[in-house]
Every structure is written in structure tokens, then in C-alpha cells.
Design a binder for these strands. Structure first.
Lengths: 335, 335
DNA sequence: CTGAAAGCGCTAACAT
DNA sequence: ATGTTAGCGCTTTCAG
């Protein structure tokens, strides 16, 4: 059997409650006793049982993330690596731990939400890639469960942290315009995904402002899908001279399509993408990309979530916007 | 307050113990009562409180992974994305959940092990990248804590799952020899990392067998480091005509160096790497890479760990070897 | 087959 | 300042 507070209490010749108090850092404990307790704890390398604490305190000190993609996309797309690594790093500085689930099908998604919520395995959730009329969000709200959305959940009253994706996309598109590109197409993510829609809006604004015609091609996430979509886009009669791509990962697919069609970047085709991951170092001369300042984004999200979990006051709705920054590299320099 | 078994019991007019039995699928429950209980549960969407279950059953149904790298390497290196995604996917099919920690410094590493072990937050651990005289392993063994190592922990009596890295590297090197390459260098990972050492051994075997001189360059993990190491290797007087690279990620760095030096692949330089991630699609013609069959590797590790956690019999030591497969692409075809 | 009751290890209210 | 006591929600004997 494991060593419990009862054992420590016997060793230090105090009551078990006192041991608990010492552990909690309660000031009203006699110094002599405290010392005895502490040395007893050290002696047997006592650590409190988190299962018992969780039951009693009604808190597991666990924060959850449920990724809504199939495992293959997850492992290839750097977005998730960053997200996961950054959440883990941020939580390491707190007393919370990180519980990760991947649920590709929407039924298992729904199921896992039910489970996580009702079974109280985690104290709070980080939600990414919110969609329109997202069932997950309504479930969470109905249960009054603490959660923070990374992204832009339209129309709901909740807590979210996000970039200004409209502005980011507008800036990126403007950059291409300023660099002399005329027929700028946007290889965007799926519809009804907020990030994609926001970026489309920003792109449209930039085009309109310069009297250019928007040209939008939607693609599923995944390098294969992106490559095919790009190929269609680039082999049409009205070939764009620049591509704004949803993210670096998809840009690699677009790059492959360009390659296949014998188009050189940036000579025949300018390119700008989002996320600024290590993938931007892959093409000759580098890929211009928008840095979303992910570290900060995640930190803010975690901070807010911890506040929600621990805080007593119930704020109805907050939104934190993290600035992004265009990282100019070779792919957007028209020679 | 949340809905408990007590509430269900009242609703169904049975005792709380019976509710528990129904939940556990106990056969010795009257059918009528079972039905009543089940409909009561459905009616209020009852789910058992996992904190209480954890305390009572002495199991949290949580499996841990502690990554021993700084968060930046973690987010860039596809190895971890694969590992994490695959663990999550495998666990989704079980009743276990996944607890992920990243601890870069060795002190926090040690601390986190103490915490995870003694506080019983997780039921078992998956350990990756074992090193020589790994303190983590001794701690786990001293505590008789269930764990499975992915990799090759030398000399300890424990459970591990791994590829035959010696054979993999030998096969990869042989492939280059058979394709007419003569001066084959190995851009290997850091010393004392088991995977790297094993692969060096396999590479040496192949070289020796063909009367070729081995040429080994060690590099730290990271694309920058790899690029620099490759540049040194390729700009020396005795320039290799082929490179065996530790993994796809580092190969991207090597590729960049080749590019910079004006060497074309595979014309001037053959290349074969390991892991067979999506990065292999990046170079023109594709990058030949050894597929380590990661899905299977992780599945085996998880399966064994679950057995250790649930099983009663205590096996002293097992080792499962997963076969790998060379995926031939353009980069190793001396045309 | 089923209910009553004990107790997992801890926190916190209560009493002294 | 400290000990006693009552649970947290569940599983699992033990009786019957």
C-alpha cells in the first residue's frame, strides 16, 4: 500500500488533519510540528494522491484539448504540433496537466465531449477550429463548463483568443499587390471554418480596394487536397500570378503543383502563406508567411482558462486579439 | 450539484449499489430493474464521476508521455507529431486517455517523474528516447511503476518496443551501394542516443561488408544544425556521393546544404533518410526513406502498457521488434 | 439477486 | 493551534 497522510501523521505524531494543513501551507500550524511533518514527508518521499484530491476538491487539475481531425492530418500539419507543444509548455509552468484527445468522426467527437464534460475528467477545455453552429460549443455552454476558444466563434457569448484574421489576410494580400502581382488567387480552407472565412473576407477587402477581381479556391486540409486544388487553379485559362495560401502546410502542396506545371516561384507565381512554421524554409529563397504569434495566443488562452476554472466571478464573454506579423521572404518578391 | 448514482437510484427505486452494478455490467441484476436503471440514466444523461472511480479503483485511466526536449524541437520535429498523434489515436480505441508533458530541463524532468509516479496521476507511462543510464528508467523500476519504452534501452530488464535499427540502417546503406554509390556518408544524430548508435552500427556493417570506408558526421537534432553539419561534410575535400541521414527532418537540412553548394540530388548526391514522413514528398522526385512502421510500433507499445496496467501476471521483460520498410524514391536513383 | 455498509485518501467545517 | 468528524461518489464485500 502507498504512503498516505495517515502514515505521515503517525510518523510525526500529529493528527492527519495537521498533515493536510502543512501540505496546504496553512499558517496556523505550530512551527515545531510543521518541521516534524515536513521531515517525515521528505523521509518517505510523500506526495499526495491526486485521485483523492480530485474527488475531494472537485478538480482534476487537468486541461483538455480535443482535436477534430483525423490522426493523419494531425501528424502532418505543423499547426497542431505548435498548438500541442505550446499548450504543454505553457501548462508546465502551472499546476495543471494536459489531456489530449483526437476524435476524427463527428459522432466520436460528440461522444467524447459528453464523456469529458459529464465525467469531469478535465477541469476545462481549449477548443480549436470552431465552426458555425458548433455543437461542441452549445454542449459546453449548456453544461456551464469552463472553456476557451482559440479562433473566432461567431455569435456566441463566450471566451475566445484569436488573431485578427481579416486584417492578417488583408495585409498579406496587400503585400502581394504592392510587390506588383495582379492576379492574386486565394487557396482557402474549407467553408464554414471561421479562420478560412475571416481570411477570405480580408483578402476580398484588399482585392476590392485595389479594383482587382477576387479568385477563391476552397480546399480541404491536407497536402494532397491542396496540391490538387492548386493544380486546377493554376492550369485554368486565367492563371493567377500569385497565390495566397491558407497555411504553410497547404502551401507545400501548392508548391508541388506549381513544380509539376513547370511554374517557378516567385518568377511565374508569387506565394504568401500563413503560420510561419519551419516549412517556410523549404522552398529556395524561403516562403513569405504570416506569423500568427502562436506562443502568445496559446498563453493567453491558457491563462484565461485557468482564471475561469479558479476564478469565482463569472464574466460573460471576453475576446483577446493577438497581433500577427508578415515575414517577408523570397516567394513574394517578383524578381 | 451533479447527478450521482444516488439520484439514479432514487429515480429507479433501487439501491445505489444496484446502479453501480448495472453500470459495471454485472449479470446478476434483475432485468426489470436493469431496464429501470438504464432508462433513468439515459433520462438525465448520467455519466459516472471519473474522479470517484479513480480513487476507488485506484486507477485514473490515464496514460502519460513525458517528452524530454525543449518545446521548439518538439513542434518542428515530425517524429513527435507522429508519436503524439499515434498515441492519441490508439488510445481513442481504449478506455484510456492521454496525458502529455514536455519537460526540457533535466531537473524538471526528474521532478515531473516524481510527481507523476507518486501522485498517481497516470496509470502508466510511455518512455521515448531512452539514454544510457537513464535515471527515468531507474526511478520507474524502483517504484515498480508500469511503463513501456519505445526505443532500445540497453542493459535494463524492462518492456520495450522498437525497430531493428541496426538492420534498417544496414538495409538503407546497402540500397545506396547497390545503386552505384561509392562514398556514402552517414549524417547521424547525437552520440549516446540509442537510435543513432544502432543505426551507426548498421551502417558500419554495410560499409565493411562492401569494403567501403565509413564516414560518420554527428549532428544535433534540428534543421539548422543538420544543415551546417551537412555543409561541412559536403565541402570537405573528400566529398561523399551519397548521404544517409538520421531522419527526414534532418534530411531537409541536408538538402538545403546541398542546394547551397550547387549539388543536385540525386545527380551529385544520393540521399536516403529515415521515418518516411510527408517531408519525403518535398524534394523533386521524392526522398527515399525508411518507413519505421510507427503506427504499429505505437500500437504495440500501448497494448503492452495496457496489459501491464491491467494484467495481474508480472512479466519481467519483453521486447517487441517491429519491421521497417525501405520506400524507394528519386533521391537514391543514380540515374 | 439486492441492499446496507465500509472505505479509497483527502479537505474543511466544527469544536475545543 | 489542532484534533475530531463528516463527507466527495464510487466499488465491493458482506449479509440476507
Amino acid at each position: 500500500m502507498r504512503v498516505t497522510q495517515q502514515d505521515i501523521a503517525r510518523l510525526a505524531n500529529v493528527s492527519q488533519a495537521t498533515v493536510s494543513r502543512v501540505l496546504a501551507g496553512d499558517v496556523r500550524v505550530d512551527d515545531a510540528k510543521r518541521t516534524r511533518v515536513q521531515s517525515a514527508m521528505a523521509q518517505v518521499n510523500y506526495q499526495p494522491d491526486v485521485r483523492a484530491q480530485a474527488l475531494r476538491r472537485r478538480k482534476t487539475q487537468l486541461i483538455g484539448l480535443v482535436i477534430q481531425r483525423d490522426a493523419n492530418t494531425v501528424k502532418d500539419d505543423p499547426f497542431f504540433s505548435i498548438l500541442v507543444a505550446e499548450i504543454a509548455r505553457t501548462l508546465a509552468k502551472t499546476k495543471f496537466h494536459f489531456c489530449l484527445d483526437i476524435a476524427d468522426t463527428s459522432s466520436s467527437q460528440s461522444q467524447i465531449y459528453d464523456e469529458l464534460l459529464r465525467t469531469r475528467r478535465v477541469d476545462g477545455l481549449i477548443v480549436v477550429e470552431p465552426q458555425m453552429d458548433d455543437i461542441r460549443l452549445s454542449k459546453l455552454q449548456a453544461d456551464r463548463f469552463p472553456f476557451v476558444v482559440i479562433g473566432n466563434p461567431k455569435g456566441a457569448s463566450l471566451h475566445s483568443v484569436d488573431n485578427d484574421n481579416v486584417l492578417c489576410a488583408r495585409t498579406a494580400a496587400m503585400h502581394l499587390v504592392e510587390n506588383g502581382f495582379k492576379k492574386i488567387a486565394f487557396l482557402a480552407g474549407p467553408e464554414r471554418v471561421a479562420v478560412a472565412d475571416d481570411r477570405v473576407a480580408g483578402y476580398n477587402m484588399a482585392m476590392e480596394q485595389h479594383g482587382l477581381t477576387p479568385m477563391i479556391k476552397r480546399t480541404a486540409f491536407g497536402i494532397e487536397a491542396a496540391s490538387e486544388a492548386a493544380e486546377k487553379l493554376l492550369s485554368g485559362k486565367d492563371r493567377p500570378d500569385a497565390l495566397l495560401v491558407m497555411d504553410d502546410y497547404l502551401a507545400i502542396g501548392a508548391l508541388r503543383a506549381a513544380n509539376k506545371l513547370g511554374l517557378s516561384v516567385p518568377g511565374d507565381l508569387g506565394m504568401v502563406s500563413f503560420n510561419d512554421t519551419f516549412l517556410t524554409t523549404i522552398p529556395e529563397g524561403g516562403l513569405t508567411s504570416v506569423n500568427m504569434n502562436f506562443e502568445l495566443l496559446v498563453q493567453q488562452a491558457v491563462k484565461k482558462l485557468v482564471e475561469l476554472i479558479e476564478g469565482s466571478e463569472e464574466q460573460s464573454s471576453t475576446r483577446h486579439v493577438v497581433p500577427c506579423e508578415l515575414k517577408v521572404r523570397g516567394s513574394s518578391q517578383k524578381n
